[in-house]
């Protein structure tokens, strides 16, 4: 089995990529990508720590099931908002988008 450090490294790199995307991107959909990547980094961390503690814990998998469901939900609502905004404005640039009212 790989040591925990390797999984942690992958997770941290994904988190870094996610933060980078969150801070530099202007497009709402790309920011959604970054959020999903951060979610995934967290999930990998939870699963890896649960699996590699001794004895392995099953609660990590339960927690990740919940997170995956929550992330899907967040994507659904976020994309609905993006669609709505794209009908009202032409642009979905989050830095120009200052109001959500039609």
């Amino acid at each position: 089995m790989e040591p925990i450090t390797s999984f942690f490294a992958v997770s941290v790199i994904l988190l870094g990529i996610g933060i980078y995307g969150l801070t530099t991107k202007r497009n709402a959909i790309r920011i959604l990508f970054s959020i999903e990547l951060i979610y995934n980094a967290a999930n990998l961390n939870i699963i890896a720590f649960a699996r590699l503690s001794s004895p392995p814990l099953v609660t990590g998998q339960v927690l990740v099931l919940f997170t995956i469901a929550l992330a899907a939900m967040e994507a659904a609502v976020g994309l609905a908002i993006v669609m709505l905004v794209s009908r009202l404005n032409v642009d979905i640039d989050l830095r120009k988008l200052t109001r959500l009212r039609g």
Binding site: M1, P3, I4, T5, F8, A9, V12, I13, L15, G16, I19, F49, A50, R51, L52, S53, S54, P55, P56, L57, V58, Q61
Partner: peptide, 28 residues
């Protein structure tokens, strides 16, 4: 941020999580 977190994780957790090769009931 990644480097900071990475070193923190590597220092703190490498020995604390030995990780048995056979998962057994923990992944059942």
């Amino acid at each position: 941020v990644s480097l900071l977190l990475g070193t923190a994780g590597a220092v703190s957790s490498a020995s604390a999580f030995p990780g048995p090769d056979n998962c057994g009931s923990g992944c059942d």
